[in-house]
Write a protein that binds this DNA or RNA. Structure first.
Length: 362
DNA sequence: TCTGGGGTCCTAGGACCC
DNA sequence: TCTGGGGTCCTAGGACCC
């Protein structure tokens, strides 16, 4: 029987300003300085840079306006991959169950770590110290009974902190959060909630499911209701199989000649096919994603009878999808093009979210 | 304030089948 | 003219995350 109630045994570990911290670690001259990684768009901003209002995802031009003296570090992918590998080596040593959430972030379940490991707090303290010593990076850890609480705890404890939210504290902890801060509520849902005069999680928690469904629609309404109630039964799942391979590229504004477009497409398909070959993956559904001048997006897909990782059939399918979308492209102006292969062989067919209340496993 | 590159999950509707 | 109940697969789009 799966038990999700009881003690706070889920850890969320997240390296602070990962890309910027790696740059500072590798060049001590940068310590204490505002550091930005990424040129066109800010991939990471050191906490010194954040004091100027710089945030990741922000345009590079605006970031430089906010802080002209910021150091722009060039991304060095190998250093990030190495740092990530070292980070996860420590995590796997300290916890029996680790779920990777990105290059620099993970959930850990220490419920079965054994008595010698100590309390979840002890493990979190050790984790932070060992990552600092062995990888040279600051990592913040949140501890809670659910993934949601652990995630929100690490966010609250940043930078370079640790916060344990015990089961009797979690209600008050969540209630105080603004709706847009909750993990799983993005700009679209936050806006709808704000229009109803709802601004805190505590206010959401007082509403019944039907009310939230009326405001947000069935799926999102139920989801937000569960989140606000902290009814989160999602287990920490190691080794979740990948579900798609993709590559995309943004284009300069203005006319794109069909020849250039096809060249870009070939490059993207090559990248995807190469990565799939490297891991032995194959998929049946080919996706073409397009983004236009006004930032609207569309996706077109085609499903093949057999899974493939070969360049030729993927390219043929994407060319066909692109040809079908040509009228739209000529009208709207293209700013981004992406190719993905999904429906991977052996990856199952989805429906993973176990945020369920009603689920009564046997 | 105009926004990169990589992903995930969910839902609705239509086609098709028994 | 009215028209059951169940299921799967595919496509398109929306929303969210790092």
């Amino acid at each position: 029987v799966f038990v999700s109630d009881g003690a706070a045994t889920i850890l969320h570990a997240d390296v602070d300003a990962f890309f910027a911290s790696v740059a500072q670690r590798d060049d001590p001259c940068l310590l204490g300085l505002p550091v930005i990684v990424g040129a066109g768009v800010v991939m990471a901003a050191s906490y010194e840079a954040r004091r100027f209002g710089i945030r990741s995802g922000m345009g590079g031009a605006r970031a430089r306006r906010l802080c002209p003296q910021a150091v722009i570090a060039t991304p060095g992918w190998d250093a990030y991959v190495d740092a990530s590998r070292e980070l996860f080596a420590v995590l796997h040593r300290l916890a029996p169950v680790v779920e990777r959430m990105g290059i620099e972030e993970a959930f850990l379940d220490v419920a079965r770590a054994g008595p010698a490991a100590g309390s979840p707090r002890d493990i979190a303290v050790r984790l932070r110290a060992e990552v600092r010593d062995e990888v040279g990076l600051p990592v913040t850890v949140g501890v809670g009974r659910t993934k949601l609480v652990a995630k929100m705890a690490s966010r609250a404890a940043k930078p370079d902190g640790l916060l344990v939210v015990s089961p009797d504290e979690e209600r008050a902890f969540l209630n105080a959060l603004a709706v847009q801060e909750l993990w799983g509520i993005g700009p679209a849902i936050a806006k709808k909630l704000h229009l109803q005069g709802l601004s805190t999680v505590g206010e959401l928690a007082r509403l019944d499911e039907a009310t939230l469904v009326a405001i947000l629609g069935t799926g999102p309404g139920r989801h937000v209701h569960l989140l606000a109630q902290n009814r989160d039964r999602r287990p920490v799942q190691p080794n979740r199989p990948r579900r798609s391979y993709g590559a995309q590229r943004s284009l300069r504004r203005g006319r794109t000649e069909p020849v250039d477009l096809d060249e870009t497409l070939v490059g993207l398909v090559d990248r995807v096919a190469r990565r799939m070959h490297a891991t032995g993956a194959a998929g049946r559904t080919i996706l073409l994603r397009l983004r236009f001048d006004d930032y609207t997006r569309i996706a077109r897909s085609h499903t093949l009878p057999e899974a493939t990782a070969e360049r030729e059939p993927i390219l043929a399918a994407t060319r066909m999808l692109l040809a079908d979308a040509m009228a739209l492209i000529e009208r709207e102006g293209l700013t981004c093009i992406g190719v993905a292969v999904a429906n991977l062989a052996g990856a199952g067919s989805g429906r993973q979210l176990e945020l369920a209340i009603g689920d009564q496993p046997e």
